[in-house]
Amino acid sequence: MTDAVRAALQRLTRVKGVRGAMVVDAEAGVPVASELETGVQETALAALAGSLFRRTQDASTASGFGRVRSLQLESAGGHLFVAGAGALLVVALADPAAQLGLVRMEAGRAAGELNA
């Protein structure tokens, strides 16, 4: 994992309300690098974020909408943001009150750096 990606994950976790950020292998759904608050389950987050991205990707392409670039899961307990970066995914878990615009921007930047 390059320093740039590590720095990108740290930028993400500095956004108010972000509980964790990680880079996940999209094919395997396993963590590659992570910056997580205590209590966030790394294996579960990587596996479920990876699986959700893959399922939505399949649904989107089958429906004719093309590949998914990013997804944002909204729930009463917070938000899960996943951005595609080639063979990798950038994942961010945030509180309900997080600054979502910043989360999206930083996750997008991280995905761009991974793709570069």
Binding site: D25, G29, V30, G50
Partner: peptide, 12 residues
Amino acid sequence: ESTLGLVQLFFD
């Protein structure tokens, strides 16, 4: 249909 991550998660 599955991934290594999902298998590990549910194996635990």
